[in-house]
Simulated scan of single mutants.
Amino acid sequence: MNEDELNGNLGMGSSDFDQNKFHQVTVSDPHARSSSAFTVPRRYVDLKFLNAGAQGTVVSAKDTLTGQKVAIKKMQQPFVMTMSAKRAYREFVLLTSIQHPNIIRLLNAFTPQTDVANFREVYLVMELMSHNLHEVISRLRLDHRTLSFFVYQMLCAIRHLHQSGIIHRDLKPSNIVVNDECVLKVLDFGLARKQTVDTAMRMSDYVVTRYYRAPEVILGMGYSEKVDIWSVGCIFAEMIKHQVLFPGRDRIDQWTSITKVLGAPSDSFINRLGQSAALYVRTQPQYPGQSVEEIIPDGDFLANTENSGANLTAAAARDLLAHMLTIDPNDRYSVEAALNHPYVKLWFKEDEVNALPSENRYRAEYDRDDKQLSEWKALIFNEVMQYQNTHDIFQGTG
């Protein structure tokens, strides 16, 4: 049984889409031993499974009109629950809005359905990159230049998002892709949120994969764009150590994992917590924490790749990391401070760091709206139709 049968889409057959414009290809997932039907414009051929996750299935394909290889993501059951529909809406709007060299570029978007009643599939066509960062970390020891360049590009991406009024909120190695030229791009905006002056807003439990979750998120504080800096710091450490720095089985264990490494937080931080969170933190073991040299010893780096003239040294890397992985967000580096740190500043390019903000069409009030599932479905359908009406999805390059 394939994904479409499981989702109750039996019997739709050839009448469900225009066969003059679309064709249907069944793609098998060799790991899960399942399959998924991709209904795509005929310009896309040679579909091959790449990966699958909670948010969708991704295949590679050849675009016969441009000659380039692309990635096509089929959003995973976007209208089954309100939460998944809201996430699909966020991702679609932001991918069609945000443009930066270090953010994945949308090449095309479509649905084979022509009315909202039958609407059930959304496809996103994006640049095809060689690997995600998780794969790179698991296979390679990175030299200082590559570590520095990857961190710089992550920082450029989140600075652009922040300048465009967006906090990513779910940065992790599997949401970052690279190519063979070490160009890095951030993707997956399903949890991104528009920045707000309402610092009392709280993140849901679903925000940010646990290992990369900032202390203020774990403890239910208000949050700012500095949650993304914490995540970059965690990823940076993982690139060096080849293991997760703060592994936690659950929220409580995650907090314990952080304090065992970094030590107990300051009174200033604890005093800003809610009453129950503050009481919890004060009753936990008061770990002294480790020095940054103990956390990231010299042996974790490739010593023969140091270049003191370019500030590509273990000491410089540890200094940047220590300023990113600071429990109190008030003391944590801003993205601007991180970009000006000697370890990454050698890559500084004005058009990358200070690119003009992208148009931000995402409406922040939707994060707080109590919309029905049918309303989210209609919103996404209208967005896809608007895109298709303004892009020649069958003949042009999008």
Rank of each mutant, 00 (worst) to 15 (best):
117 A>E: 15
112 P>R: 09
141 R>M: 04
131 H>Y: 11
162 H>E: 09
163 Q>T: 11
77 Q>L: 00
119 F>I: 07
114 T>F: 00
75 M>R: 10
121 E>V: 02
106 L>H: 05
143 D>Y: 01
102 N>C: 14
119 F>E: 03
93 V>R: 05
77 Q>Y: 03
133 L>S: 00
186 V>P: 10
73 K>Y: 14
127 E>Q: 15
87 R>N: 09
117 A>T: 14
144 H>N: 12
119 F>Q: 06
112 P>Y: 14
101 P>W: 06
91 E>T: 00
94 L>N: 11
112 P>G: 10
187 L>W: 07
109 A>R: 03
98 I>W: 07
171 L>R: 02
140 L>R: 15
124 L>N: 08
173 P>R: 00
172 K>Q: 08
183 V>L: 13
160 H>W: 06
169 R>I: 01
71 A>T: 07
94 L>M: 13
166 I>F: 05
177 V>I: 14
84 S>R: 11
135 E>K: 13
156 C>F: 01
172 K>G: 06
112 P>F: 13
136 V>F: 03
123 Y>K: 06
82 T>R: 15
136 V>P: 05
159 R>F: 01
127 E>R: 13
74 K>L: 04
154 M>Y: 01
172 K>C: 11
137 I>E: 12
148 S>E: 06
179 N>P: 02
90 R>M: 09
160 H>T: 08
178 V>P: 09
125 V>W: 09
69 K>N: 14
176 I>L: 13
174 S>R: 05
180 D>S: 14
118 N>D: 15
185 K>T: 02
74 K>I: 03
171 L>V: 05
172 K>N: 11
111 T>W: 03
162 H>N: 13
112 P>S: 05
181 E>D: 12
173 P>Y: 05
73 K>P: 13
93 V>A: 03
112 P>W: 09
164 S>F: 12
110 F>R: 04
177 V>Y: 03
158 I>N: 06
154 M>H: 05
93 V>D: 00
124 L>H: 10
107 L>W: 10
85 A>N: 08
94 L>P: 12
167 I>P: 12
172 K>I: 01
139 R>Y: 09
129 M>L: 15
122 V>C: 01
118 N>H: 15
98 I>V: 15
189 F>T: 02
71 A>V: 03
80 V>E: 15
116 V>I: 15
106 L>W: 08
92 F>M: 08
136 V>D: 03
84 S>P: 00
73 K>H: 12
104 I>S: 08
136 V>W: 00
176 I>K: 04
134 H>Y: 08
170 D>H: 09
169 R>P: 04
147 L>H: 04
134 H>C: 02
160 H>F: 03
128 L>N: 10
165 G>W: 07
179 N>I: 00
183 V>T: 11
122 V>T: 11
93 V>H: 09
162 H>T: 06
159 R>N: 14
167 I>V: 15
71 A>L: 08
